[in-house]
Nucleic acid binder design. Structure first.
Lengths: 203, 203
DNA sequence: CCACGTATTAGCATCTGCTGCTAATCCAGT
DNA sequence: ACTGGATTAGCAGCAGATGCTAATACGTGG
């Protein structure tokens, strides 16, 4: 019961500190843990923790990748099958980041995003915009679940597509949605040409 | 017309390179631009570009912040007014990241996310889950637009709320949606208690 | 009590990617 | 030919590391 925590305890503390702030330097760590810099180095070595510079770089890259995939990705989730104009399937494995911390239940808009992006990707056109959607969240989805979305074109009139999307976890329907998607030629043009509403596109 | 690009041209190239990869080092920059390391340093100085370490750190922090706000934020956008159980307003200024590069049109799920999270936040309960939604994208929204969403509870039966959300850009309706949200007591419980469908919560 | 092992600390050389400074060189314009 | 902007070179120094060696502290078993 020294003022100083024992080694294994210190190792947990170390991990904790770095969890909270990955940019923290050896010197600072040494101060906070009440040990020498050398000890911190040995600890990092034992725990296989890279140096601050490296950690920062990794965080930067991973976070960037994440932002890109969430914000910029063509399809949310992984496209596992496409038959343009007919049907498409994507798989998304929601992380804890996508869920409410308290309940672990995935936020609805991620499920919507998967379905919507899939519906849009399915349409065989330069540019496609979602005009409307009717969706039902049938059952909560938890972080770690394997979310499989299947989209099918059910109707087509000119540039207006009707796409049904069903998402499942372990074979059970958790989400169902109907999307109206408008396709545009190479010339995107402005909104509301015929049916009136439109909104999404595909790069 | 030397093989080497002129200074202003090189400056643009420099910006471009760093845009593509912010982690790139002075040495590498010098190689790619065909000049000496010193010149790169002078250029960075002129352009007010910080060193690679600093750039990496910034990217890491910003991206992390962004991911958090997109993935974990309670409300997508900034909550500017709430009257629990009645109405709420949030403002979102979509960045280029949220739009398709080709057209600059904001992806539908961001607009949906703003509306959905607002509807959920509006419900005065420990936990709230979206059960269903019917939405219409009336007009394209572009990166840089100021997207104002207004949610109103239009009906309430027990723990079942009906929430209307209208989003505007410069006073013009661009999105309209109707959300069915289920509120739960302190004990979240499992899904489908009465009305059948539910799905979102609030931390 | 002493010896051995583990943990901790210290010190030093070295590396990378920078800053800050001074000095040399090149090259074009008048 | 001279001046001035652009470029290059070289060097000292810093921060935050690594890798290595050595000294010290603190048990615990013999």
């Amino acid at each position: 019961m020294s003022a100083r925590p024992a080694k294994p305890e210190r190792h947990r503390l170390l991990r904790g500190l770095l969890e909270g702030d990955p940019f923290i330097t050896d010197r600072e760590l040494a101060d906070r843990l009440g040990v020498s810099v050398q000890t911190v180095r040995l600890d990092r070595l034992e725990l296989g923790i890279p140096e601050a510079r490296e950690r920062t770089r990794r965080v930067a890259e991973e976070a960037t990748r994440k932002v890109r995939s969430v914000m910029t990705g063509e399809v949310i989730g992984e496209l596992v099958h496409v038959s343009l104009g007919e049907e498409a399937i994507s798989v998304l494995e929601p992380t804890a980041d996508m869920a409410f911390r308290r309940t672990g239940i995935v936020r609805g808009h991620h499920i919507f995003a998967q379905a919507n992006s899939l519906a849009v990707a399915l349409v065989d056109a330069e540019v496609a915009l979602t005009g409307a959607a009717t969706v039902k969240f049938l059952h909560p989805v938890r972080a770690g679940d394997r979310l499989v979305a299947r989209a099918q074109v059910t109707q087509r009139a000119g540039r207006r597509y009707r796409v049904n999307v069903v998402s499942q976890v372990a074979g059970k329907d958790v989400f169902r949605g109907e999307f109206v998607v408008f396709a545009s030629g190479p010339a995107p043009g402005e909104a509301g040409s015929e049916g009136g509403k439109l909104h999404e596109d595909r790069p």
